[in-house]
Simulated assay, not measured.
Amino acid sequence: MDAVDKAVSLSTAKNHLASLVQAVETGEFFHISRHGKPVAVLISEQAYSSLQGHQSKRGVWSAIANWRAVATQEIKAWRDRSSDREVQLG
């Protein structure tokens, strides 16, 4: 079944949460807006789990650590470590 996309205001979502959750369980999803600007999406647990399965299991900090381990030599090359550079004091 294709998901149906609908927009609702935050106040409508607050007043009709039970019926929105029931609709979400049948495959619909809702963009929730505050003052006309989108701020959240209400989706089913099944859809959320599916989205989570598409993301890396490692997490952000693990990805950063992996990048740092691979790029260590490149990072070291960013600094000029030569001792014969001219320094102006005062």
Rank of each mutant, 00 (worst) to 15 (best):
D2R: 15
S62A: 14
G90I: 05
E28I: 00
K57A: 04
K14H: 08
Q22K: 12
V70H: 02
A63N: 08
S19T: 07
D84F: 11
Q88I: 10
V24G: 07
A7E: 12
P38I: 14
Q55R: 12
W61Y: 07
H54P: 02
S33L: 10
P38A: 11
N15R: 15
Q73Y: 00
Q52V: 10
A69G: 10
E45N: 06
R58V: 04
A23M: 04
R81D: 14
S44L: 02
L42G: 10
R79V: 11
H54T: 07
A3C: 02
R81I: 05
V4E: 12
K57P: 00
K37C: 03
K6C: 01
M1C: 01
V4K: 15
H16G: 05
A63H: 05
S50E: 12
W67F: 07
T12L: 00
K76L: 14
W78A: 07
T12D: 06
K14N: 14
S44C: 06
I32H: 05
L42P: 09
T72D: 10
K6E: 12
L51W: 10
Q55I: 00
Q55Y: 10
D80W: 01
N66P: 06
W67L: 08
L20P: 05
G27M: 10
Q55D: 06
D5S: 03
A65P: 00
T72I: 01
E25V: 01
L89T: 15
L89I: 14
F30K: 04
G27Q: 05
V24Q: 04
Q55A: 09
G36A: 03
V87R: 05
V60A: 03
L51H: 04
E86S: 08
V60F: 11
R81W: 02
S83L: 09
S44N: 14
A23N: 11
T26Q: 15
E28T: 13
G53Q: 08
D84G: 05
P38C: 00
G36R: 06
G27Y: 09
I64W: 14
H54Y: 06
V8L: 01
A63I: 02
S56T: 12
A3R: 08
A47T: 05
D80T: 01
S11F: 00
H31Y: 09
Q22F: 13
P38E: 10
K76N: 15
V21H: 11
Q73S: 06
I43N: 04
A18Y: 11
D84E: 07
I43S: 06
W67K: 03
E86W: 07
R34L: 15
G90L: 05
R34E: 14
D84Q: 09
S11W: 01
P38G: 07
Q73F: 00
F30A: 06
Q22L: 11
K14V: 15
K76T: 07
T26M: 11
R85E: 02
V8M: 03
V60C: 09
A23P: 04
W67A: 13
